[in-house]
Simulated scan of single mutants.
Amino acid sequence: MTREPLDASANIDRVLVTGGDGLIGRAVVDHLAARGLDVTVLDIPGTAAPARAAARHITGSVTDPDTVRQAVTGQDAVVHLAGLAGLDRGSAEEIYAGNALGAFLVMEAAGRAGVAKVVYASSINAFGLPLNPDPVLPTHYPWDEDEPAVIADAYSLSKQANEHAAAAISRNYGMELTGIRFPLVRDIYEHDGTVFAQHIRRAMNEDPRRQACEGWTYLDTRDAAASVEAALSRSTPPAPGILVAAPQTYLRQSTEEALARYAPAVPRDSVPGRDIPVSLHRASDLLDFKAEHTLEQISEALLVDLKDINP
């Protein structure tokens, strides 16, 4: 059941965005600033493209308690996006510490400071299957946030830890938290869609099982920002994170054809057309959110043709 929306106009004027100079962060900062919110960014030094729409920048790490405490002071809401996004961003120790400890410190400091709302970045990897070194697949298609976790890597583990931290801190402080399980997020319009098209073709050829686990999902940065706004203004359970994605896959062929090719033994319900084999019912019911930007809006020629993918 959908809870009553928060009165965002009365409760949220000042927002801290951790990782606000990153890919999703810049889009979120621009989006919230355009809505008239006073946005502060907390990010590490040396970012090539800082978010210019932010009213102020704080330089520092979310793993430093003093920096975090100072940053959350006086904020009405926090959007926590800082972290190491993937296994190629550091050692297992660095990834887990940066993501799990960083999220805990931000949530804990926000609770102590009386912040009204925290929206945090979880991941489609929070259930562990896509990055699992074993050839695992979901138990059923379409799958949703209740799909059992099978985790074997530090990144996925850190994202599940974030969701457990959110539940614990919500119980302790009575604070509103919403996690968003982002899929592959990119600016799909970059260079008329060609950069994203090259990325997904490479991903399909390198690890088609992982892409099948993720349901061939993606999300444009603009929709990622819109999902954050939706989460800021609504009350949800603090965990599990809510899956968001474009409603259709990036494949030219039907989803049924892709499932028959890459997951023939997995039980499934019928999936019409090119709809993703991932349920977005919680995004719809709890956030009233639906992604608007799709690859085929740029050009259908950008979609991945399975005939061009290595068997």
Rank of each mutant, 00 (worst) to 15 (best):
D88M: 11
H57T: 03
I58E: 03
V41G: 01
T67L: 14
A85F: 03
V39W: 04
I95P: 00
T59L: 04
A77L: 11
L23W: 03
R14I: 08
L84E: 05
L81T: 05
V41W: 08
G25I: 13
V79M: 12
L23Y: 08
A8D: 13
Y96T: 01
D64I: 11
V79N: 00
T73G: 12
T63P: 14
G111Q: 07
L101S: 12
L42I: 12
A82Q: 06
Q75M: 15
R89L: 04
S91K: 07
N99W: 09
E108I: 07
A100S: 07
D13E: 15
L42K: 05
S91H: 06
A54C: 12
A113K: 08
N99V: 03
L101D: 10
L101R: 11
I12M: 15
G19H: 02
V78S: 09
Y96V: 00
A85I: 07
P45Y: 15
A100N: 04
G46E: 09
V79T: 03
D30T: 14
V41D: 01
D43P: 00
R14P: 00
V72T: 03
V29E: 00
D38Y: 06
G83N: 01
A113C: 09
A100F: 13
L32C: 05
A82W: 02
V15H: 06
P45W: 11
T63D: 11
V68D: 14
R69C: 14
P45L: 14
G111R: 06
A71I: 02
R56S: 02
G20F: 08
P65W: 10
S9K: 14
D38W: 08
L37H: 15
V29I: 10
A85G: 12
